[in-house]
Amino acid sequence: MQKMIFSLVVLVTMIGITTNFAYSQEISHSTFQETAQIVIDKTISQNVTASITLQSTSIQEIKIPAELEQEIRTDPRIKAIILTNQDQCVLGVVDESCIMINVIRNPDDKGIIAIQDSTKEISSIYIDKINQVFDTNAKFHSVFLHSDDVSNLALETSGIISGRGMISAVYTLPMEDTSSMYEKISGILLPKIIRESGGFYDVAKKLSSDENSKMTFSWIPLDSKSLLQLKLSVDYPNKASDISNIKPLEFLNIENLQRSDYFSTGFYPLNSIIQVVILSSENTNVSDVRGNIVPTQTIDNEEIPTDITKEGWVFDPQEGQRIQGKYIFGEKLSVSNQELEFSLGGINLQKEKQEFDESIVVVVIITIVAIAASLFYLKGYKK
C-alpha cells in the first residue's frame, strides 16, 4: 500500500495535474502556504510559542533572484541560509542580527582551522549577493560548528538549519526591532498581491510589534527548487503549566482568523493550516472540542482526512505525552477562537471510521508532504 501511494504521489506531482472530486468544486493546491502554529511546552521550558509561517517553493511568491537561487541550489555544500534577529543566533553573538550560511563539511578538511577556512571561503562567494537580496550589510563574525542543539532551541528549528554537525558561517548586522525588520523583509520578499491579500500575513504583521516577537527567514535548497519560509514567532514565558483549556487564537491576539484572499481564485482547502502541539510530562488527551472533528482514515500510521471540503480538527495523536492537532478550513474562509477551542483531559474522543477513498488520499498526502516540509523546521514538529 505504501509503495502504491508513493507512486501515485510522484505521478501526480510530476505531471502537475489537478485532481477532480465529486464535490461542488475542484480542489487545487498552491505552492504558497500559510501556517499558524501554537506550541504549548509543559515539559521543560513551560513556554507557549505562537508563530505564523509563510512559505513557498516558488520564487515568484517569495522573491529570490532566479540566477542566485539556482547557483545556491546547485552548490552541493550549501544547506541553508538563515536571516534572523533571534537572540544569540549562535554562541558568541549578542545583541546582533545574523545571516548564517550553513554548509556541510568538506571531507578533505583536516582539523578545525581547515574547516573554518573552507567554510569562510565558500560563504564569501555568496554573502555579497545575499546582502543585496535582503538589503543588508552583514559582516563576517565567525565560523560556528554546531556540536549541540543550543542554537536549534534559540531558533526554534531543527536538522538542516542548526542541528548537530552543521557548520555555519556567521555574518552579523546591527540588531533591528522585529516590527521594522519584518516589514522591510516582507516588503522585499513578498509580492504586493500577497501582502495586500491579508490572511495570516496581516496577523504576523500585527504580532511583530510584540516585545517578545522574533523573525526568521529560512532558505533551504532542495533538489529542483528551494523551500522559502518567512516566520514570525512570539514567546509567552511560563504560560504553559496552567493551560488545560486551549483557545489557540488567544496567542495570536485575535478573535477570528481569516484565510488569505490570495486563494480566492479557486478552492485551496489545505493551503491554510492551524497547528497546535502540546508537549506534556504526563499522559493527557484531547476532549471537549467545541468545533468539528474531521473524519479520517488511518493510512500508513497517518490520520488522513477523508473529506477535505469539511472544516475541523484532525488530532494525531490525540492522547499521550505529545498531542498534535491540525485544523483545516475546508470551504470556510475564516474561523473563530470559539470554534477552535478544546480541552485537555476529560473523556477521550471517539474516532469516526470512514471508507477508504484512494483519490482523496493522493491529494491530501501531496499537501501533507508540503506542509511537513515546512513544519519539519519548526519547533515541536519533526515528522
Score class of each variant (00 low, 15 high):
Val363Met: 10
Val103Trp: 00
Glu255His: 09
Leu91Met: 11
Lys231Trp: 00
Leu228Gln: 07
Asn20Val: 10
Ile243Thr: 05
Gln350His: 07
Asp288Arg: 06
Gly380Val: 10
Ser374Trp: 00
Gln60Tyr: 14
Leu189Trp: 01
Lys63His: 10
Gly159His: 09
Asn20Arg: 13
Ser118Trp: 10
Gly92Thr: 09
Pro65Cys: 05
Ile99Thr: 03
Val369Cys: 08
Ile220Tyr: 00
Lys110Phe: 12
Ser97Lys: 08
Ile328Cys: 06
Val294Ile: 12
Phe217Pro: 00
Phe263Leu: 08
Lys110Gly: 05
Leu145Glu: 14
Met181Asp: 02
Glu26Lys: 15
Leu270Trp: 00
Arg290Met: 12
Ser264Cys: 15
Lys3Ser: 14
Val203Pro: 02
Ser244Pro: 01
Ile101Lys: 04
Gly16Tyr: 00
Glu71Met: 10
Ala204Pro: 02
Thr119Ala: 15
Ile81Cys: 00
Gln70Thr: 09
Ile81Pro: 02
Glu196Arg: 02
Leu227Glu: 00
Val362Leu: 00
Gln86His: 15
Ser151Asp: 13
Ile125Thr: 13
Ile5Ser: 07
Val362Thr: 08
Leu190Lys: 01
Leu378Glu: 15
Ala114Asn: 09
Tyr377His: 15
Glu211Gln: 10
Ile44Val: 11
Gly111Gln: 05
Val143Met: 02
Ser260Tyr: 04
Lys110Gln: 15
Leu8Asn: 11
Ser218Ile: 01
Ile62Thr: 01
Ser142Lys: 13
Gly345Leu: 08
Gln33Lys: 12
Glu69His: 08
Gln88Asp: 14
Gly312Val: 11
Ser272Val: 04
Ala169Phe: 01
Gly291Leu: 08
Ile127Phe: 04
Asn238Ile: 11
Val170Phe: 10
Glu71Ile: 03
Lys184Leu: 04
Glu183Leu: 12
Ile81Asn: 01
Asn137Glu: 10
Thr157Tyr: 01
Lys42Pro: 13
Leu349Gln: 12
Asn47Gln: 09
Lys332His: 08
Tyr171Arg: 09
Tyr236Met: 07
